[in-house]
């Protein structure tokens, strides 16, 4: 199991469109990927749970991945978040 903590940069945080991108990106990996924000956690297969994390701009979140491809999985997810989801 590996994890990484990072800051979310895009203006509106993780709303519907970024959350959908996270779901799609996670689907490519066998690992179970979890996002934790404060006291709330969500696996990245559920759009509604990701939204309910209420991640805003400058929120600090922790990504956790567990499985055979956990290294690749976490790299993809972290890159996606750092890219600002192609938004601002």
């Amino acid at each position: 199991m590996i994890s990484q903590t990072l800051k979310v940069h895009n203006k509106i945080g993780i709303h519907s469109r970024p959350a959908a991108l996270l779901v799609d990106a996670s689907k490519r990996y066998a690992s179970v990927i979890t996002i934790t924000h404060g006291e709330r956690s969500a696996t990245t297969d559920s759009l509604t749970r990701i939204l309910a994390l209420r991640v805003k701009m400058n929120s600090e979140i922790t990504i956790q991945a567990e499985g055979n491809d956990e290294n690749e999985a976490i790299e993809t997810i972290v890159n996606l978040i750092n890219s600002g989801f192609g938004e601002d």
Partner: peptide, 16 residues
């Protein structure tokens, strides 16, 4: 299109 696309993700949401 964006709104309706998000509905597809809600539909597939494994939690629900």
């Amino acid at each position: 299109a964006d709104i309706l696309n998000s509905h597809i993700y809600i539909l597939r949401d494994p939690e629900i």
